[in-house]
């Protein structure tokens, strides 16, 4: 058995954005507007190769629009790569799986369900209703929402909603968490709090492999074991760094601040350092 949990093997993703959608009346015009050779093909990801081990916490950094989210969606099975493949435990990903859970930036809780009902959706495999209730309560407590179980998402603050989303994701007992800028819609202080909680979850769930897309370099430095920096599209892995510093980390450490300058350099930012 290989130690690699996720193997991203020569993944290329191309989007076609030249052809306008076929009009309903162009019955016979199949080839006219869709997918013909003259199309504008945009390569988002170009030959990406990454190996990720079980239990790793990997941050993906890069400019807006560089395909970080697309990469995550390919791993989640939401998007099929144009070429190449993603292998998880040696098996090719062809469709979404309940053990590879995606956490969205915001608003993926179902607004018409209470927080508890939202979390129960991830507990579908639990048949006994009492056990289900207990499990839901457990995950709510884990993220500090035990008093908000019967509230609707709109009644909660942004930070609490994001906690609930994370609770729903881990309630599905995933072996891979795919987090797409999960804290970027939150205010600074809430983000710091959730960063701490994320670390706690990482320690609690050592078998869970986490991929964490972010724009926040400090967030990445504080949380992850490995950093992946992506170039602008057609994106490739620009640089890959392992962070060995133990948790909790002090960001003013010489190793981390060096690394930060290094990241800024790779992202083409020269004034912020």
């Amino acid at each position: 058995m290989s130690e690699n949990k996720i193997l991203i093997d020569n993944v290329t993703v191309e989007y076609r954005n030249g052809g306008s959608p076929r009009k309903p009346w162009s019955l016979f015009g199949k080839g006219r507007n869709c997918g013909s050779a003259g199309d504008d093909v945009r390569t988002v990801l170009h030959d990406i190769n990454i190996e990720i081990k079980t239990g790793e916490f990997v941050s993906v950094l890069g400019h807006s629009g560089c395909g970080k989210s697309t990469l995550l969606k390919v791993i989640a099975g939401f998007v099929r790569p144009t070429r190449g493949a993603v292998l998880i435990d040696g098996k090719e990903v062809t469709k979404p799986q309940p053990d590879h859970v995606f956490v969205f930036q915001e608003g993926s809780l179902f607004p018409w369900l209470t927080i508890r009902e939202n979390i129960s959706l991830a507990l579908r495999s639990v048949k006994d209703p009492r056990e289900k209730e207990e499990k839901a309560a457990y995950y709510l407590e884990l993220v500090g929402l035990e008093n908000s179980h019967s509230q609707y998402p709109y009644m909660l603050s942004g930070g609490m909603r994001q906690r609930a989303e994370i609770a729903r994701a881990i309630a599905a007992q995933p072996d891979i968490l795919l987090m797409d800028e999960p804290f970027s819609a939150l205010d600074y202080l809430t983000r710091l709090n959730l960063r701490e909680e994320m670390l706690y979850l990482h320690v609690m769930l050592p078998k869970t492999t986490i991929l964490f897309v972010t724009h926040d370099i400090d967030e990445a430095l504080q949380l992850c074991n490995r950093l992946i920096i992506m170039s602008d599209p057609p994106s490739q892995v620009k640089c890959c760094r392992t962070i060995k510093a133990p948790h909790p980390r002090n960001l003013t450490d010489i190793e981390l601040s060096d690394l930060r300058s290094h990241i800024y350099y790779h992202l083409g930012v020269h004034t912020a350092v």
């Binding site: 989640a76 939401f78 469709k95 979404p96 799986q97 309940p98 590879h100 859970v101 995606f102 969205f104 608003g107 993926s108 179902f110 018409w112 369900l113 959706l121 991830a122 579908r124 599905a172």
Partner: peptide
């Protein structure tokens, strides 16, 4: 209906019937 809800549904592997009852009907109600 926001497509994200269906991504969540496919991620949690809701059946079509569950998607209808838990997403489509309440979202359009």
């Amino acid at each position: 209906i926001h497509p994200m809800y269906f991504l969540v549904a496919s991620n949690l592997q809701l059946t079509s019937w569950e998607s209808l009852c838990k997403i489509i009907v309440p979202a359009t109600a």
